[in-house]
């Protein structure tokens, strides 16, 4: 299954390379003056958005860009592509989600993966796609596992709405998530066993890639760790998954079996200072 999806990713990768080539001609050199990060109120964000938020914050920190966190309960609707949190650059550009942010920054000359060779860049895209599957699993965990849904997701999601919206909106959202998860994972039948298997799949793939390296990539010349966007992304997801408490959390357990991943998180935190400064606002 992994092979199959990697193959798909290779095709989409070529497409994205072409896109990037096109983009080079239109590279803009806008300076980044201000960044507003619009997020859910603390405590009401769900697992997927918490993961994404951590990744984004880590990436921005790594680039040394300072941002202001704004709390809005309607982030989901502000977003143009359904991914959140939402970043607003210079009060005009709206950037939603991690991958859009990477692209946006790359166009403006902010990149962590310049030192990589072409093969490594391909690898990076493949593992980025792997994290997409992790995202689907996060959505599954939050929305489609009944315990989590009733005890965590539903109260959090409806905390800022009143009845009858609090009854209608989760219903629609749940349906939407079901479709998204089903289509993204190409699963015909969604079950907890499936979740476990998928999570293990992803985890073992990540572990395998890491081997005994500190980060995913190494500088070819010096042999030192290179912190790339992929590290930010993976760290963000893993960290958020490990830090979140859910009533039924088989995903966390499945990931926890791979102690290499926990070690990785600790390592990048301590060695490379990847830490989302949540308290900052």
């Amino acid at each position: 299954m992994l092979v199959c999806s990697s193959f798909n990713t290779r095709i989409s990768l070529r497409m994205s390379i072409l896109e990037q080539l096109n983009d080079i001609s239109t590279t803009v050199n806008n300076e980044i003056n201000s960044i507003r990060l619009i997020d859910h109120p603390k405590g009401f964000e769900l697992l997927p958005s918490r993961c994404e938020a951590t990744s984004i914050k880590v990436l921005l920190e790594k680039h040394g860009l300072s941002y202001q966190v704004e709390i809005k309960s309607n982030v989901e609707y502000i977003s143009t592509n359904g991914r959140f949190p939402v970043l607003i650059f210079n009060e005009t550009d709206i950037v939603c989600g991690f991958s859009e942010l990477v692209k946006y920054l790359w166009k403006r000359g902010y990149s962590l993966s310049e030192k990589l060779n072409q093969n490594e860049k391909c690898d990076m895209d493949i593992y980025t796609a792997l994290i997409k599957r992790l995202e689907a699993l996060e959505l599954f965990t939050s929305w489609l596992i009944e315990d989590n849904y009733t005890h965590v997701t539903l109260p959090a999601y409806t905390s800022h709405t009143t009845w009858p919206l609090s009854a209608i909106l989760p219903f629609y959202k749940k349906r939407q998530v079901y479709r998204l998860v089903a289509s993204q994972g190409q699963w015909h039948d969604i079950s907890s066993e499936m979740l476990m298997a998928e999570t293990k799949d992803v985890a073992s793939a990540l572990t395998e890639r890491l081997g005994d390296q500190g980060t995913f990539f190494k500088d070819g010349d010096t042999g030192q760790d290179v912190v790339t966007e992929l590290d930010c992304l993976v760290y963000g997801h893993l960290n958020a998954i490990f830090m979140t408490k859910l009533p039924s959390y088989r995903m966390k357990r499945a990931l926890g079996l791979h102690s290499r991943l926990i070690d990785y998180c600790k390592y990048v935190e301590s060695k490379h200072g990847l830490r989302a400064q949540r308290e900052r606002s």
């Binding site: 309607n74 989901e76 609707y77 502000i78 607003i88």
Partner: peptide
Amino acid sequence: LWQQIHGGHVPMKIREEFGHHL
């Protein structure tokens, strides 16, 4: 009234109003 504000390319300030309201 249950109202949803949504849309495509709008100024950022209006986009911040998006969502469901009762």
